Amino acid sequence: MNMPRLDGNPPTHLFYGGTYPYDLYDLDVLRALSRTSPWLTVVPVAENRDNPWWFPGTSTLPAGMHDRVTGQLGRVVAEYADWADRDIQVVGAPSMIRTTEYRLMAAGLDSRDIHHDPLY
């Protein structure tokens, strides 16, 4: 199935996170997908504002991309909006999943609305 071309997709926020801005690879692909899918909002999140001193390149956002947010992913997601009417899918490392789930429940979400793959 080609989800970007389907009509009637629910509003979807994709929070794409990493430790440093250089961890947020393939933003050009995500930006292109969001441009053709009006229901999709991509929010890049990095825990640190700058890349480490030893990283030789730069990490620029594609034109038209949502501004990069700096902070811990779970906190950013929980504070971004009221997600009470949403189905939440969390994907990532087990520690990030647990932290994000905890932050969302602390913000008032019911744990039944937060889904993820089984944790190891």
Results as ranks from 00 to 15, higher is better:
Leu14Ile: 11
Tyr16Pro: 01
Gly17Met: 03
Gly18Glu: 09
Tyr22Lys: 12
Tyr25Asp: 09
Asp26Lys: 08
Leu27Asn: 05
Val29Tyr: 11
Leu30Tyr: 07
Arg31Ile: 02
Arg31Cys: 12
Ala32Trp: 03
Ala32Glu: 15
Leu33Gln: 10
Leu33Asp: 06
Ser34Glu: 04
Leu40Gln: 07
Leu40Ala: 10
Val42Asp: 03
Val43Asp: 02
Pro44Asn: 08
Val45Pro: 01
Val45Phe: 02
Val45Ser: 05
Ala46Phe: 01
Glu47Ser: 08
Glu47Gly: 08
Arg49Val: 11
Asp50Gln: 13
Asp50Pro: 00
Asn51Val: 03
Asn51Phe: 06
Pro52Lys: 03
Phe55Ala: 14
Ser59Gly: 09
Leu61Tyr: 06
Pro62Asn: 10
Ala63Gln: 15
His66Val: 09
Arg68Glu: 07
Arg68Val: 08
Val69Trp: 00
Val69Thr: 12
Val69Ala: 07
Val69Ile: 14
Val69Leu: 14
Thr70Trp: 01
Gly71Asn: 06
Gly71Thr: 03
Leu73Pro: 00
Arg75Ser: 11
Tyr80Asn: 06
Asp82Ala: 10
Asp82Lys: 04
Trp83Pro: 00
Ala84Ser: 15
Asp85Trp: 00
Asp85Gln: 12
Arg86Phe: 10
Asp87Pro: 00
Val90Tyr: 10
Gly92Val: 02
Ala93Arg: 10
Pro94Thr: 07
Pro94Val: 06
Ser95Ala: 15
Met96Lys: 03
Thr100Trp: 00
Thr100Met: 01
Thr100Pro: 01
Glu101Arg: 14
Tyr102His: 13
Arg103Gly: 01
Arg103Ala: 15
Asp110Ala: 12
Asp110Lys: 04
Ser111Tyr: 03
Ser111Lys: 14
Ile114Lys: 06
His116Thr: 08
Pro118Asp: 14
Leu119Arg: 10
